[in-house]
């Protein structure tokens, strides 16, 4: 039996060893965490583990025992979205949306870790989200707007 925190709730799971965190989360309905590849190349599978960005496809569920996992499911409540998500919407930093949850988590982890992050910090954390039909400019703008004020522009 593995126990960990998932979006603030204690979870106990009896899972076959070898199961990835990605498969577990999607199986439980956390569809914001996407399959991009088995190799962590796309970043569409980004989650936060104890506040740090990681690839869910590159982690076995057994290794997260005792950890605190966050997905964007904890950010929005129905239509009531997080200011960072709102900033992405306002800036139009969304196309197919497949990778957007990963980008939102990347920016949020940066906001928590660093005071006054600059554009190069933003590009550094977004670099691992390589799934990019949204493009390269608007997510950076959306992030900078949010980081400057804590609100969308």
């Amino acid at each position: 039996m593995i126990q960990f925190q998932l979006n603030g709730k204690q979870v106990s799971a009896n899972v076959r060893p070898g199961t990835t965190l990605l498969d577990f989360l999607r199986d439980k309905g956390y569809f914001s965490v996407k399959y991009g590849s088995d190799k962590g190349e796309t970043g569409a599978d980004t989650i936060l583990v104890d506040g740090n960005m990681m690839n869910a496809s590159l982690m076995l569920i057994h290794t997260v025992s005792g950890k605190n996992i966050e997905t964007v499911e904890s950010f929005a409540h129905g239509q009531d979205v997080h200011p960072l998500q709102d900033s992405f919407i306002e800036e139009g930093a969304i196309q197919c949306g497949y990778c957007t949850p990963g980008m939102v988590l990347a920016i949020e982890s940066l906001a928590r870790e660093k005071d006054n992050p600059n554009e190069s910090d933003v590009k550094d954390v977004l670099a691992g989200v390589y799934c990019r039909c949204t493009g390269y400019v608007k997510p950076v703008k959306a992030a900078m707007n949010y980081l400057a004020t804590g609100e969308p522009k």
């Binding site: 962590g40 970043g43 980004t46 583990v49 740090n52 960005m53 990681m54 690839n55 590159l58 982690m59 990347a106 550094d124 954390v125 670099a127 691992g128 989200v129 390589y130």
Partner: peptide, 9 residues
């Protein structure tokens, strides 16, 4: 080295 996600692991 790679991206932040992989650097954390």
């Amino acid at each position: 080295f790679a991206g932040v996600q992989i650097r954390h692991r």
